[in-house]
């Protein structure tokens, strides 16, 4: 019996789609069968981030309205064996799917897959309601900005009202140097306001932009610092206890050499 997890944030542009793609790929690398669903109808992105745009035949709306079988709407990712995508429809709007249809879709998919990840659209309107309708659990993504944290707080309240208990937090794009200088909110500040369990922290990493544009999740890059963060998150989702990363680590080549000789951090 699979688990349905919605990935949401309230605010746009904090990295929901990138997070969904990376967690999905990360879970597949742990041997799980995963479906990622792009619930952002009208503004589909997840297919681009995963590099599967040119393989779309059927989409989410086709699948829930019975235009095609659900199996036909699943796009297999050849690089990650066991990862499937249901893309959003691009030419329709959020009202073309109902909450009950999403519940039915999730219930059918959970029979055959270990994890169903839903990439939620920004905002708190119908698209959000559809995306959380079938979910058992939620992951709230935020960045260390006051506005993103404020929206995350609102979303947590709405999730609790929808009886999705204990959402977990991913703080994306942390810049340790700025936190150190006191120019950016640190984890403690965010935990203090949001008061939920932290699932993971992801450092700001320009490799993510590069890999996103190439359509290849960072999680596959063994050398990448942010990829390591997503691998840890995937492990925690499967129930393993992995300590939070020490973002203070100097991860440049010089830093690694220094560590090798036992000097520097």
């Amino acid at each position: 019996m699979g688990e349905v997890i919605v990935i949401t944030s309230g605010k746009g542009g904090v990295g929901k789609t990138t997070t969904t793609a990376n967690i999905g790929a990360g879970l597949v690398n742990l041997g799980k069968k995963v479906v990622v669903i792009d619930a952002d109808i009208g503004l589909r992105n997840l297919d681009v981030v995963l590099g599967l745009e040119n393989r779309i035949v059927y989409d989410l709306v086709d699948a829930v309205t019975g235009e095609c079988k659900i199996k036909q709407a699943l796009i297999k990712d050849k690089r990650f064996d066991g990862l499937y995508l249901i893309p959003a429809a691009q030419t329709k709007d959020k009202d073309s799917v109902s909450e009950q249809q999403m519940v039915d879709l999730c219930n059918e998919l959970r029979e055959t897959h270990d994890y169903i990840l839903i990439d939620c659209p920004a905002g708190i309107e119908q698209g959000f309601k559809n995306a959380i309708a079938g979910a058992d659990k939620a992951i709230v993504v935020t960045t260390p900005e006051v506005s993103a944290v404020r929206d995350a707080d609102r979303i947590i309240g709405l999730l609790e009202a929808a009886e999705i208990e204990n959402p977990r937090l991913i703080v994306n794009r942390i810049r340790p140097d700025m936190v150190r200088r006191g120019e950016m909110m640190d984890l403690a500040d965010m935990k203090d306001i949001l008061a939920i369990e932290v699932l993971g922290i992801v450092p700001d990493d320009e490799n993510v932009v590069i890999s996103t544009n190439r359509g290849l999740p960072t999680v596959a890059d063994e050398a990448s610092f942010s990829g390591q963060a997503f691998r840890n998150i995937a492990l925690r989702i499967t129930g393993q206890e992995v300590p939070l990363m020490d973002l203070e680590l100097d991860n440049t080549v010089m830093g690694k050499i220094k560590r090798l000789f036992g000097i520097g951090k």
């Binding site: 404020r150 929206d151 707080d153 609102r154 947590i156 309240g157 709405l158 609790e160 008061a195």
Partner: peptide
Amino acid sequence: KIVRHTLRSGM
């Protein structure tokens, strides 16, 4: 009126 939970943004 006694409210026995945290009031989040928007509440």
